[in-house]
Amino acid sequence: MKPSEQTVRTFMKDRFATENGAVIEEVDDHYAKCSLKIEDRHRNAMGAVMGGVYFTLADFALAVASNWQEMGSVSLNSEIAYLTAAKGDKLTAEAVCIKNGRTTGYYKIDVRDEMGNLAAAVTATTFRVSK
């Protein structure tokens, strides 16, 4: 479902991600889909999308998926595999909760390019600092 105005306002405070172009497209129960329009500033010296862009978008999707209903979850650990150079002008990250425990969660985040290619795969563990 589309994010509420309140959700969008809340996550605009994630300034590094949002000032680099990350936007929320969808949210649901422990799920988020976020995207980013690729610009020249996102490219490295070889002309490819900088690895930090993939990770920033994935981390933003994780933050939204794990916090949009109730703030208090932080990333405890993340691992990223860069699988292919992005094609097109847009990246999309989908964060899905695999395990939502009492204090920790485990998420899988797929980052796809505009053609639908899996460009990066991320797994992340979250920790709930407040309940």
Rank of each mutant, 00 (worst) to 15 (best):
K2V: 11
P3V: 10
Q6H: 04
Q6E: 09
Q6A: 07
T7V: 15
V8R: 12
V8L: 12
F11Y: 11
F11T: 09
M12S: 15
A17I: 05
T18G: 04
E19W: 11
N20I: 06
G21A: 09
A22W: 07
V23P: 10
E25S: 07
E25F: 04
E26R: 06
E26Q: 11
V27L: 03
Y31I: 13
A32Y: 04
S35W: 00
L36K: 08
E39Q: 13
H42Q: 10
G47W: 07
V49R: 04
M50H: 15
M50R: 13
G52M: 07
Y54F: 05
T56I: 03
A58H: 12
D59S: 07
A61L: 04
A65D: 02
S66T: 09
W68D: 02
E70L: 04
M71E: 14
M71C: 03
G72T: 03
S73D: 07
V74I: 15
S75K: 08
L76E: 02
L83F: 11
T84M: 14
A85D: 06
A86I: 06
A86K: 05
A86S: 10
K87Q: 09
D89T: 11
K90P: 09
L91K: 04
A95N: 05
A95H: 03
A95K: 04
V96D: 05
N100R: 15
G101Y: 12
T104I: 15
G105I: 13
Y106F: 15
Y107M: 02
Y107N: 01
D110K: 07
V111E: 00
R112E: 11
D113R: 01
M115E: 14
N117R: 08
N117F: 02
A119S: 15
A119H: 09
A119M: 13
A119G: 05
A120C: 07
A121N: 14
V129W: 03
S130Y: 10
K131W: 01
K131R: 13
